[in-house]
Design a protein around this nucleic acid. Structure first.
Lengths: 221, 221
DNA sequence: GAAACCTTTACAGAAACTTTACAGTCCGGA
DNA sequence: TCCGGACTGTAAAGTTTCTGTAAAGGTTTC
């Protein structure tokens, strides 16, 4: 999912349309306020920011995003009509990942976006976002709506495994084997109990863990 | 150290000169062969690549760098006079981190380079502040509320390592490996004991060291 | 050789994990 | 629609594992 904050309607729709044609899911926002609102519902994997915006300028948005733990490492590309050197410097020094002056060619934009996304994935895919849930395995950080959630080891491993296998169902046996590291015979409610506390601790994001009756659990899709 | 591969002498010297004026160490190479030779002696922290070069073009160099484990993650910025869209796409899709068309403004180049470097290494910070704790590794100074705290070597190294990896959890094994410099077999409470004295000496700032049960310790975020 | 520092040992307390037992829910067949 | 079995959710008790801590025993430094 890619978010675009751009007040010019024609540009916004053109970009969203082009991204979708490239199998990149995208949403456009006219105003920062709408963007912030949506951000609390779902975290995108990349953000395109115009600099000149109503309400709040792009640089300010950029700085706020860099200050939040769940969006700190998100690739952010700045778009702007003000092609002056000053803006470039300002944008990059505030921590933007790229800067594209308007008018830009669509294929160049797509290309740069893909370059950013690939770069992130290369880093070991060590980050998961789903809805308002954010997990960074290497840093051992889990947040829901930016609020840190403290999980125990088993809960944490379970969450990571489910996210890693997003979209596919994991049986209790699979979970036991992968996390506990041994074959398990007979019945046990161990997994269920951990799933319960996990859902509880995740609060509203707990609904992301889906029960598949007769099989096990899954997250995503 | 920044490496620049650029056949045009005037540009090469101008860039190297400008980088040095910004306290960025840099070396320029006229031909790829000279660059490869030097690369085996020292790894730079960023590479600037012209696309049009004698012997071997920049894209080819880029691909080779991305294939080597020691240079795979190095930030690489492409420079080129061929400002066509084709080149941009080609450059970014091969894994370049940025693309700057000639002619470029020096300050913009510097700005983009700094943005890249900051993104990669945040370790240039020779000072850490967290709450009322202040640590300056190069001067071997630790204070809490301006009051100096005297630490032993192991305690000090531990504190620095935790601060350097602020926000991420370090396991006991990692701490042992990094500070003691050897593999550790079996159990040991050594790390715990040092953590304890460290917390004690830091007083109220001791709470900044967080225990992550089942994993290890971390500071920050 | 004393002081400072580091490591090991041992144990208690705390936190995490598992089991148990039962309540609630889903779903197919009568 | 109702019923019963199979499966899942939940609370609480029981068990294990992990961490904090004090103190003793080594080691290095001066």
């Amino acid at each position: 999912m890619i978010y675009l904050v751009e007040d010019d309607e024609s540009i916004r729709e053109l970009v969203v349309y082009t991204l979708k044609s490239q199998d990149l899911d995208a949403k456009g926002f006219e105003k920062p306020s709408l963007f912030w609102k949506e951000l609390d519902k779902e975290l995108p994997s990349l953000i395109l920011l115009d600099i000149m915006l109503p309400e709040e300028d792009g640089i300010s948005i950029l700085k706020k995003l860099r200050a939040r733990p769940d969006t700190r490492k998100l690739p952010i590309i700045m778009l702007t009509a003000k092609g002056s050197e000053y803006d470039t410097v300002l944008g990059l020094d505030s921590g933007a990942d790229d800067y594209i002056p308007k008018p830009f060619r669509m294929m160049e934009l797509i290309s740069r976006i893909k370059a950013r996304l690939r770069r992130v994935e290369d880093k070991g895919a060590e980050e998961y976002r789903m809805g308002n849930l954010y997990v960074c395995p290497s840093r051992y950080v889990v947040t829901v709506n930016q609020e840190p959630v403290s999980l125990t080891l088993k809960e944490y491993e379970m969450l990571c495994l489910l996210l890693k296998n997003s979209g596919i169902v994991l049986s209790r046996t699979q979970l036991l084997n992968q996390i506990w590291g041994y074959e398990f015979d007979g019945e046990s409610r161990t997994v269920d109990v951990h799933i319960r506390t996990l859902r509880q601790k995740l609060g509203e994001a707990g609904d992301l863990i889906e029960t598949v009756r007769g099989i096990g659990y899954k997250m995503g899709k």
